[in-house]
Amino acid sequence: MTSTDERGWLRALPADGGRDALFSRAGQRVYGTRRLSELVQGRPPGVTGSQWGSASRTAFDLVVCGPETGQPVVAVTIGPVPLPGSAEQRAERLADAVGAAVGLPVLRIGSPTLRAAEHGRRLIEYVLDARAYAAGGTGDEPAPVGFRDILGRMPDGRTGPVNDLGALARAAAVEAYVAGQLADPIVRGLHVRWAEGPAQGWSWVQPRLDGCLVERVSITAQRFSCGVDEARLAEDLATVAIGERLRVARSEDPDLLARADLTAEIAALSRRRDELVGGFAFDHLCVD
């Protein structure tokens, strides 16, 4: 059962003491799949009946709710980005319009490999921990070290950034190299943020000297802060996806991208630096 917040359009979810929650983190409850109609009280002003009918059926994979109000802190989707012009893309845009109308915070993780069932909990825990850490600063003084850059003991025993979500995948790449499954042990990557679009991270390894296994992740955060730089988080998540792919990858994988083609794509990205927030910091990757 849900209750309605009479001060606004967002519903409090649920009124059962949180027993229906999948898990709790940093004092906040995390629920499974919910439709937009379960988070919003009716059709908001400026949204037509047809638009609401389509948008209200849109589902979010996970919903984080505050401990006191029970209102959504953020609604999350994790999975493939809808194809341009598809019905899924139109429904997503309508849902985003409704979200903007009612102030619903939304976090969209676009990835062909990552899924809420396998990766959602770790991602949500990470983001909530990062937000709590960032909020720990006093007044105008932020935490002396960013959450992503906190140093500690890594899985391989070295000292490094313990909040690098891709650390396990990087260690797995080294093991795969030692086992002769990769031509290079290093997981490489880049990250950018489009001025008129999402943050994006790329990550890749080389099963062959002339073939790369590439993953790309996009992050769109609407009215929500992840507690860390979204572009760096996107690259780390792309590395997580590389780790998933390494479990099944073979050197003859038809999805491998020729190294020269990847270099060409990076060079093409660099030529669009004027469209990026902060420009492009990876020119060294444009040379094959």
Rank of each mutant, 00 (worst) to 15 (best):
P198R: 02
V187Q: 00
G32M: 04
F60T: 02
A95T: 11
A21E: 08
Y133I: 03
A195K: 15
P207E: 03
Q206N: 12
E196A: 15
E230K: 04
A176R: 11
G49L: 08
P112D: 14
R7A: 05
R93W: 08
E244S: 08
H284G: 00
R170E: 14
R153V: 15
D229S: 05
P144K: 12
V187K: 01
A221W: 07
F280N: 07
D255W: 08
T159F: 14
L83V: 13
L237H: 06
E175N: 13
V277M: 07
Q206P: 00
R272M: 01
V47W: 11
L182C: 11
R208E: 00
A171P: 04
A221V: 09
G53A: 13
A173W: 09
V127Q: 04
Q222W: 09
S203I: 03
L269V: 03
W202K: 00
D129L: 13
G46W: 11
L168I: 11
D288H: 12
V240P: 05
A176F: 09
L62Q: 07
A135N: 13
R131A: 01
A75P: 08
A169K: 11
L246C: 05
F147R: 10
A171I: 11
T69V: 00
F23I: 04
R90C: 01
E175C: 07
G166Q: 03
A116F: 13
A26F: 04
I242P: 12
D96E: 14
V145C: 05
P105M: 10
S111A: 02
G79K: 02
L285F: 10
G211H: 03
V277Q: 12
P155Y: 08
P185T: 07
S24V: 07
A176E: 05
I219E: 01
A100I: 03
A134E: 15
A195H: 06
I219V: 15
